[in-house]
Design a protein around this nucleic acid. Structure first.
Lengths: 243, 243
DNA sequence: CGAACCATTGATTCGCGTCAAACCCGGTGG
DNA sequence: CCACCGGGTTTGACGCGAATCAATGGTTCG
């Protein structure tokens, strides 16, 4: 599949938030250069790097994370196909965290000079890219809110979020989707130990809300899960309006 | 003091990250409309609002927060003089959290239509505004990392962050600064109970790192505090370079 | 067929929440 | 001037959620 076919996923995410003219879409496509592939476990960017391209995730899953000197890792974000994984490096310049591949994944490069030129030529499109980073920020806030709630709520909330975000990409079918995240990694994202994650998953399974086996999530009771997680998708801003 | 004198604080924050031409500074100044004042405890914006202006904090302290149905409150950010408290509402449109005043505070209004025009006329300035929201995002990530560490580290880290951010504004003198935050609010920011915050503060005081009495923070041992908090200010991106 | 990784389970410990009460303070009003 | 009050701080007792330590299966893979 050609890279710019997959770019459509990103475009559709933009178009869920505002109209994007054909000219803008073309300018965006023209902005991409080559693509690259990484095996599971590889780092796409590392803390301290000064990338000269931003990467759009075409296929696979990635995390943003920070390692502590004591060996623990905190995952601060999970990215799904169609997300920009490090658009912020365009302006932040020096990475303050790393981006790692959860699965084999493919990315499309957007050289920074071209992106800068894009913001000059297409201010509206620039605002939409800005918006996408603002939504990332909103997700961070939501994780902060969730962080001080009991483990079952946290896990349920993350499942709700990923389900909702993946629904947009067409990856979900029949309330089932693949998520290449181990229980250890889930713990790193939520600030829980792998042991406790395991017990929490068992509990939620027993409640009949969803199953999570062999990296395959099956949501059995969406409304119940939403309630369990106090999930309110407004923070994802899946609303189309002039920006 | 005239409002645009205080706007200089914001300008100096921008200029710590990149050059800002006089023309750009003037365009920014012209973008402001009127100012407003709020008493401590008031909300500047509420979840669900659709503001038509963004507010620059001239004086005082504010929080971003979300209230849960069970009555608990989670503070996701603290803003200090010279910060934009809701620049993101420019593109996010519908607020997904509230902004409350920790102290009496004064803000300067920036009507959204003018800001949009600004992004069209001054792409570089637009990128700098974007950058400021990216730094907010970076702070969120740092809080996420800190959230899964023991209480004393968390508190120490927040003190380090605020000290560093306030240093830029000239509010700090002799390693002392005023911070209108109660122990309850500190708990709401860190996801700790007020009781535990109290005991944690006592412990840190006993360690001789800093004192926090009557909303006055006095840092006694900056290097020790940094070490205790594993504080690395790189995430605040206080570096000047072309953006 | 071991090595490595992941999921699972049990036992124990500990950080932190919760509940409850006392204390300290500046502000208010009789 | 003192009784009163409310918000914030402080202390103590108690219990729970989650970390830690340690060990056992299950799988995949070289």
């Amino acid at each position: 599949m050609a890279a710019h076919t997959l770019l459509d996923t990103f475009l559709s995410k933009l178009r869920m938030r505002d109209d994007v003219s054909d000219a803008e879409a073309r300018a965006l496509f023209d902005c991409a250069s080559d693509d690259a592939e990484y095996p599971a476990g590889a780092d796409l960017v590392r803390e301290g790097d000064r990338p000269h391209v931003s990467m759009l995730l075409l296929d696979g899953f990635t995390t943003r994370y920070r390692d502590s000197p004591d060996g623990s890792r905190q995952i601060t974000a999970i990215h799904v196909p169609g997300d920009f994984v490090d658009l912020h490096s365009l302006l932040i310049k020096e990475m303050d965290h790393s981006v790692g591949a959860l699965s084999r994944c493919r990315v499309l490069h957007f050289p920074h000079p071209r992106l800068v030129a894009l913001t000059e030529a297409h201010p509206h499109l620039a605002r939409l890219l800005w918006l996408m980073t603002l939504i990332d920020s909103s997700i961070h806030r939501e994780w902060l809110v969730a962080a001080s709630r009991p483990a079952p709520e946290q896990v349920a909330h993350l499942v709700c979020e990923l389900f909702t975000r993946l629904n947009v990409t067409g990856i979900v079918r029949e309330h089932k989707f693949h998520l290449p995240v181990t229980q250890t990694e889930l713990g790193e994202a939520l600030g829980l130990s792998a042991v406790h994650v395991n017990r929490t998953l068992q509990q939620l399974r027993a409640e009949g809300l969803f199953t999570w086996q062999a990296q395959e999530i099956h949501i059995l009771d969406w409304d119940g899960l939403r309630r369990r997680a106090s999930f309110d998708e407004r923070y994802l801003h899946l609303v189309k309006e002039p920006r």
